[in-house]
Amino acid sequence: MMRPEPLQLGMLLYPDLTLLDLVGPQAVLGMHARTHLVWKTLEVVMSDSGIGIQPTATLDTCPEDLDILFVPGGMGIARAMEDPALLGFLKDRAPRARYVTSVCSGSLLLAAAGLLRGYRSTSHWASLEFLRGYGAEPVKARVVVDRNRFSGGGVTAGIDFGLTLLAHLRGEDTAKLTQLMLEYDPAPPFNAGTPDAAGPEMTERVLQFLDETQQHLQRLSDEARSAMAA
């Protein structure tokens, strides 16, 4: 039995992305794909945890026809949303990509590129409502699928996202085999992974930590909403 051709997976990089947003999905999908780590240059891009990522393609050399166009989230997402080169790349590749996807606040970058208007999407809980400013419908869920838009929630949802997309592309059996290969059987030691579970005091402490980014994202969302209304 012949193995299918590897998928073409384009994963956009930018400074201060969250590493797990990227490597969670890549760990799942990379077993079945040729991964293109895309940035403006081939110089190392630093994640928001201080670990560098080596790009393998530039915005110009990334394949034009991708099976999966993917955007991670991270502390640098607001700056990325104001970068014309990144927005232009997404606008160019998305119409030809089979699937346009994101994890965590990466959905905001897709939204800023005009790629989620009229689509249901999810994001990290702290940035979910900002999607409304771009004409998207925020959905509080681990993984959201709307036509060829697949999005995962915050950070650790990237593995769930990857398995959901892989099942769609290669079948449920392949996704289950991949899950077993990864020994993905989560059993967190604490029940504090969502605002509902963690409670208001702990949630507020996280929001205080994210305050600068949140204010930046709020401004961008408000500007997008005003531009659509004009």
Rank of each mutant, 00 (worst) to 15 (best):
D83N: 14
D83V: 05
A85Y: 04
A85R: 01
L86K: 01
L87G: 03
G88N: 02
G88W: 06
F89P: 08
F89R: 03
L90R: 02
D92Q: 15
R93Y: 14
A94T: 08
A97M: 07
Y99K: 05
Y99A: 08
Y99T: 06
V103W: 04
V103P: 03
S107H: 04
L109K: 10
L109I: 01
A111M: 08
A112N: 01
A113W: 00
A113L: 02
G114H: 09
R117W: 02
Y119H: 15
S121P: 02
T122C: 15
T122F: 07
T122D: 10
H124D: 14
W125S: 03
A126Y: 06
S127E: 10
E129W: 05
F130Q: 00
L131Y: 01
L131R: 03
R132Y: 03
G133W: 01
G133H: 00
Y134P: 02
Y134E: 01
G135E: 01
E137R: 15
P138A: 09
V143A: 14
V144P: 11
V144N: 12
V145Q: 13
D146K: 08
R147Q: 12
R149N: 11
F150W: 15
F150R: 07
S151Q: 14
G153H: 03
G153E: 11
V155P: 11
T156H: 09
A157F: 14
A157D: 08
G158Y: 04
D160Q: 07
F161W: 09
F161V: 11
T164A: 15
L166M: 13
A167S: 15
A167E: 05
H168F: 13
L169Q: 08
G171R: 04
G171H: 06
E172T: 10
D173N: 07
D173K: 04
T174P: 09
K176M: 13
L177S: 01
Q179T: 07
E183H: 04
Y184G: 00
Y184V: 00
P188L: 13
P188V: 07
P189M: 12
F190M: 10
F190I: 03
A192P: 04
G193R: 13
T194G: 06
T194Q: 09
P195E: 11
P195H: 13
D196V: 14
D196F: 11
D196N: 13
A197R: 13
A198Y: 02
P200F: 10
E201W: 04
M202N: 07
M202P: 01
T203Q: 10
L207G: 04
L210G: 13
D211T: 11
Q214V: 11
H216F: 09
L217R: 02
L217V: 01
Q218P: 02
R219V: 06
L220S: 00
A224G: 01
R225W: 14
R225F: 07
R225P: 00
